[in-house]
Write a protein that binds this DNA or RNA. Structure first.
Lengths: 236, 236
DNA sequence: TCGATGCTACGGTCGTCACCGTAACATCTT
DNA sequence: AAGATGTTACGGTGACGACCGTAGCATCGA
């Protein structure tokens, strides 16, 4: 098959509105069932099942069977990264007119949310800003790195860079963050290995919590204190 | 408009086979006319014109009018990056079966080609390898950086990092390269600011040349010598 | 064992869109 | 001025696919 055809197939799969909603629902890294996504996309379960089967066949999603449930998740971080890049183009081109329909749900999403495996929204951008400001991380448009002082600092709050690299490709100790342009803030937040580590660490220590079962994230009082004292981040 | 809808619109535009061919034809950064792309995609000029108008309206392409010609190009590097990420997913999932239809044209593309504004194929991967081997660049899966010795070395062969940063965001001197997984080699080559600079510099100094008017790139004898003596790259 | 639930298989309908033919317009050439 | 070339406008056709209803299979709870 020509590479163009495969390219078009992948893009076309992401290009259907219903499938787009389903893919977005998976962007927090969780695994969902067919009926859950059917409800999210406002379509019948049969239709959702059809969509899911096709995306699994194409390799966009992976599926695990558990009892009478079939849990679908994004096949790999590469897929999430692809979606982020499409979102970036889509938001870039969005007309600069004021958003009219910003419901309360959108509002909490803008405050903070998970984006596959890292933090986004005002929270994600604020953390990225603070780390850059403190000289712990350096960012450019298309790459980022952790400084030597950053390695030490992150170790101090419980994020062990060496351990991270041991588990990964470990090609370079300092190269492990990726800037990811935030669609609501239009400024970069931290993705990549560091972004993922910071996110899971924050959840594990009770600094942040998911609102209901959604992607939206709230900062706990404890987290608010930590972020302020350690990073100098003043939220809200 | 909900963000999902805009997302789906962009993906759907890239998802049509004919449009995919046209977009790929623009991946070298050149600007092409409607009829040229119609020929590339094997469709009538009217159809191509329709496709182009839609992509321009969506902001994927930009157009400049010159006489009776209308030159279309990718609207921004962000679009090229999006396409690369889709290509990555598409190639990742490609069945591991041996490629049957590898014509001579594909062959020269695999040897070396431009990918929007940087070098790809065996040439691009070899250059990236050499720079990593020499300690001038550090790469991970999702980010990269130029070392201090790398800044000096690149200056020696005519690529001025400081000048590059002055023209760009210049947030960090060493952060300016992005690894971009090569679809034919399945290994990273250099993209980002550094990748683009290295590419244009190589063209300007006559180290490489385009084959006919295609994306395929050949290394000149002079370039072969430079690459070998300066970088230790042995091509073929 | 029986009903309930999650999911998939199949067939049919309807809307959307890629495509081209015809035609009009703009620009360059002679 | 007249023909050639590049491009867009419009209308019609044909095909693909998103969607759901019905039906069948697997699994869980009683």
């Amino acid at each position: 098959m020509a590479s163009h055809a495969k390219f078009a197939e992948i893009a076309a799969l992401a290009g259907d509105p219903s499938r787009a909603v389903m893919l977005h629902a998976l962007m927090d890294g969780r695994a969902l069932t067919a009926s859950e996504m059917a409800r999210a996309a406002s379509i019948a379960p049969q239709t959702a099942s059809d969509h899911l089967a096709r995306m699994v066949a194409a390799g966009l999603l992976s599926v695990v069977k558990q009892g009478r449930h079939r849990y679908h998740r994004l096949a790999s971080p590469v897929v999430a990264q692809m979606m982020e890049s499409i979102m970036l183009v889509a938001s870039d081109l969005e007309p600069a007119q004021p958003k009219l329909t910003v419901g309360p749900r959108d509002k909490s999403l803008r405050a903070g949310r998970t984006c596959y495996d890292h933090l986004a929204g005002r929270l994600g951008v604020a953390l990225a800003d603070a780390l850059v400001m403190g000289g712990h991380v350096e960012l450019a448009d298309d790459a980022g790195l952790v400084t030597n002082t950053g390695v030490a600092f992150l170790g101090g709050i419980g994020v062990d860079i060496d351990a991270l690299m041991a588990r990964r490709g470990k090609r370079s100790k300092r190269v492990l963050c990726r800037p990811c342009l935030d669609w609501s803030e239009r400024r970069p937040h931290l993705a990549g290995v560091l972004g993922a580590a910071l996110c899971t660490h924050s959840f594990k220590n009770g600094w942040i919590r998911h609102i209901d079962g959604t992607r939206a994230v709230m900062v706990t009082p404890k987290g608010r204190r930590i972020y302020r004292e350690q990073l100098g981040v003043q939220l809200e």
